[in-house]
Design a binder for these strands. Sequence first.
DNA 1: AAAGACACCAACCGCCCAACC
DNA 2: TGGTTGGGCGGTTGGTGTCTT
Length: 319
Amino acid sequence: MGRHSVYVKEKLRRGLWSPDEDEKLYNYITRFGVGCWSSVPKLSGLQRCGKSCRLRWINYLRPDLKRGTFSLEEEDMIITLHEVLGNRWAQIAAKLPGRTDNEIKNYWNSYLKKKLIKQGIDPITHKPLSENHQVRNDTNCTDKASMLLMSKFPNMSNSVEIEQPFHFNKRIFNSEAITRQLTEVSRNQLVSKQVFDPLFLYDFQANMNPIGPYDGNQDFGICSMPNLTNFEHGHMTESDFSDSSTSRMSTSNRTNTMIRHHSSAGIHQMNEMLENSQELTWDADNKIDSLFEYPYDGIKNEEDFSNNNNNNNPLSSLL
DNA sequence: AAAGACACCAACCGCCCAACC
DNA sequence: TGGTTGGGCGGTTGGTGTCTT
């Protein structure tokens, strides 16, 4: 039995998400938080599989998403991290607040890879194309990663650590034999990782004035979710709702908006935050739930969700 | 103006791992 | 201890917009 049969059997929807579906999912997660994804479709009234809901939330609806074009700093960082981590997009995304692995992966495949090739650099080895025959030295790769990042991004030196060396695929890495090959420093880093967590932005948001821009600086704000962004200004319109499914023009418009929000001043402020982020801690189990004041288990069925679904949500105006 | 090629990116697929029973 | 389930990840696909001829 393949997945297709599951979709057919349960008459699950596939493909692009409609604004209505987005709204249902958004309303549900913002009210009840992230819990068991497999139960989300049922409880939120969506005819999607849990995985699809999770993906949509993570890659599109999550309030901390930055979206828009990548800055030069981000671009540089992706290239540096890719040199160290390879195609481990989730780990790369973890170092870039507001960016998803999917977004970075797409950006890499559609733009950065070609850019490097144009510059005569092999996008896989990150060496000049003429030096492709050279075999990379992977030992001490974790240290190399940290050094690379520290040299290129001094502002992040204390908050970014590489979790795993380049070619140690997570699945292989659990092997004791391989672990033994690491240097003492690398092992320590892996064991006692103090990794910058992009989700600390949730904390930031929680402490932020929900109506006004951060510290009066309009360049710096959580502007990923158009509806939230516009809600900051006290109103929203139907056209503000993110809709990748009906119009690609909307994506372009959104992108243009985001460019305005992410000036270099904003990035500078972000860097300052990153510098200070070493002081922050985040309980992984409560990353998202703490953003939303509603516990996941506060809802038992779809009826509860409907009853609890008041009209205070920004999206409710779309109804 | 039309058709084909290309680019972009949201969403899906398949696999792995960990937790749970 | 083995099976099941859910979550996470990287690779890939396919739909749509844009560009080129």
